[in-house]
Design a binder for these strands. Structure first.
Lengths: 98, 98
DNA sequence: TCGTTATTTCTAGAATAATAGAAATATAAT
DNA sequence: ATTATATTTCTATTATTCTAGAAATAACGA
């Protein structure tokens, strides 16, 4: 079970609109993932800003990256997301609601 | 369906460790809810700090309050939580994982 | 090696958020 | 009316986060 501290950290990561957008893009991209540059084009934000937010997501294990030549491919980390969903279901939902 | 902006705002609310604790307490308290003073005792934080965080949760519809004499009773808002869970399931989870 | 592309780190400013004491408000009991 | 209790608002301080330009690094191709 994910600890409360880690759950809060993940929620905080996804709680930033830009990072939530990044993550949603990666979820939609699925196992193909997306290069940093692709993300940058899709979101239309400066590279340094994107890099900053990606670092945050990677540090909290919501995203992982794989270098492919000079391209850095990013993937949503479903395992962490699954743990977060489990935490929310168990700790933040009632028996009948949500 | 909850919009991305609102989802991010809810996630940000729950992304603060103190607020996440408050919300978890309220979920555990169920339909009985908890008075602000009860929460304060349980969490052992200054009233002004708690009030500040409660305001945040109320503004984002994760908590609602009901005055009972001089006590202000707080409840987790499961409907909002349900919408958030639906958003996360649809937008941030893959077909097979989480 | 040189040039090009992809991405990060450095840096600094602006904005936002967290914290908590003290004073203010609201409600009830005496 | 006065006092006590519950909670909020005010205020200020400190801390964190966001943003993005410029410089640095990494990887490849010619």
């Amino acid at each position: 079970m994910m600890q409360t501290e880690k759950a809060a950290a993940c929620l905080e990561s996804l709680g930033n609109p830009t990072r939530l957008d990044v993550f949603r893009q990666l979820v939609r991209a699925g196992q193909t993932g997306m290069a940093v540059g692709q993300l940058q084009k899709a979101l239309n934000i400066p590279g340094s800003t994107l890099s900053h937010h990606l670092k945050h997501l990677v540090q909290h294990n919501l995203v992982h990256q794989e270098r492919q030549g000079r391209v850095l491919r990013c993937f949503a980390n479903y395992q962490t997301m699954g743990l977060l969903m489990a935490f929310l279901t168990e700790e933040c939902c009632s028996a009948d609601a949500c």
